[in-house]
Design a protein around this nucleic acid. Structure first.
Lengths: 242, 242
DNA sequence: TGCTAGAATATGTATAGTTGTATAGTAATG
DNA sequence: CATTACTATACAACTATACATATTCTAGCA
């Protein structure tokens, strides 16, 4: 089949990448599905595994595919639209974007506020706070790593509430804060360290979007000071209604 | 030549080990505490249990963590300071170090002294002695395996006293020895055999500190000849007041 | 109250499968 | 001759699963 007179115009790996791209675009594999193994694809296309890997690397680069060592290659979900406005609610935001929201609690601890944290929350340095570390997922794919700080003086028992619900909105509600609004948001880009990369399932050094935000209650008293690291290639923050 | 930059990814297990090390150093888990199960940690970090085990194995190697099959992984207590001077009292020593002392009797028997033992105790070869085998623990963690020999000629009924109290000091007191002092101590390092490893909960071949000591009464007559095997990584003997 | 048997849980071990990385070799091309 | 594209092979790192073994908890019973 190969042969002789035919100078190949397009490299083999490119042809393979295109074939896979077509499979993906035609819905042959749905987001979250596992692709055939590299060995299987190599067999199917009649090439070496490395050639398949070359093609796959490009699909990963394009954000169409996500690979996990030892596990396989998976169809990546398209970026989630995450609106940042006066009312930021993780659950609602994701449902509105047509995703299945999920939160995973990493750690909930009581400790004292650092100087910066105390200043942001408008409490005294050394005042007790509740630190809530967690992971946000959309359709089972991690999209953000966050830390929320709550002043324990104003919100007694919020740590217990968080343990149960894992929902910030619900926990604040139980602590007596019926409603809260986003007072400020600051954004920067950082590189993922080893731990962040692990949780977010990205490579170390991958770009993350860091959001530092402050939520206040109806009386504009700070109730939550949060720091969130979004996986850069899985969300697009949209600013509106300012 | 595309990417000459180094990906320089730190292995997943290393990132996990570091995260746990930080938790430990920050006092999130106190000595003696049980760590989350491997399954729980695997879930938390989103990795396979084996990867967690790899990280854990290194923490164990470093002496930060101790695992017990079927029970869990525990934060290793820092080495116990065990002073060796004229007055060596297990109970007092550990209380002074802020630990909870405990002794477990393994065996108490009457037998005749070997030549070396008789020589050390200053009695005739073949004279009857009481051999007391036991295990010393600090905060529930085994730290030493010992054998104490008492001359029965001079200390009638000491075996019965030991059965009751398990305390050498108390038993000697009941046998008429109000006070005793350490006359000599010899130290060497040996490798734990299977039996010792079992009792001390270390791996076979682990380094042990072997102490051979002689205690004498007020009239400098030998009253106790002991051999103690300390778990090398759990105690540091301190010599003072020489 | 105390004891025993079994279920539930936890770590230890073994095996196999998958992606990531490194090195070397071969054929076609300009 | 050097470059490029692909092949070939081996090993490392991590996952997935099953099972072995030790410990702890609990129900039931005497």
């Amino acid at each position: 089949m190969k042969d002789t007179s035919k100078p190949r115009r397009t490299p083999v790996w490119q042809a393979i990448a295109t074939a896979l791209r077509i499979d993906l675009s035609e819905g042959r594999y749905m987001p979250g599905d596992r692709l055939p193994t590299e060995a299987a694809l190599a067999e199917r296309f009649g090439v070496n595994r490395h050639t398949v890997r070359h093609a796959m690397a490009h699909l990963v680069e394009e954000g169409l595919v996500r690979t996990r060592r030892g596990s396989g290659a998976f169809v990546a979900a398209r970026p989630t639209e995450y609106p940042i406005n006066r009312r930021v609610r993780f659950h609602e935001n994701l449902l509105a974007a047509g995703r299945q929201p999920e939160k995973r609690v990493l750690q909930i601890e009581r400790r004292v506020a650092t100087q910066g944290e105390a200043s942001a929350l408008g409490i005294g340095t050394g005042a007790p706070v509740c630190a809530y570390h967690g992971l946000s997922l959309a359709d089972g794919q991690p999209i953000a790593l966050f830390q929320s700080l709550f002043p324990l003086d104003r919100l007694a028992g919020i740590d217990a509430a968080l343990q149960e619900t894992s929902s910030v909105t619900e926990a604040l509600s139980r602590a007596g804060v019926a409603d809260y609004t986003r007072a400020s948001t600051r954004l920067t880009a950082v590189r993922a360290d080893a731990t962040q990369a692990l949780h977010l399932q990205v490579t170390e050094g991958a770009p993350l979007l860091r959001s530092t935000s402050l939520n206040v209650d109806a009386k504009t008293r700070p109730v939550e000071y949060g720091r969130t690291y979004f996986a850069g290639d899985r969300v697009t923050l949209t600013i509106e209604d300012r």
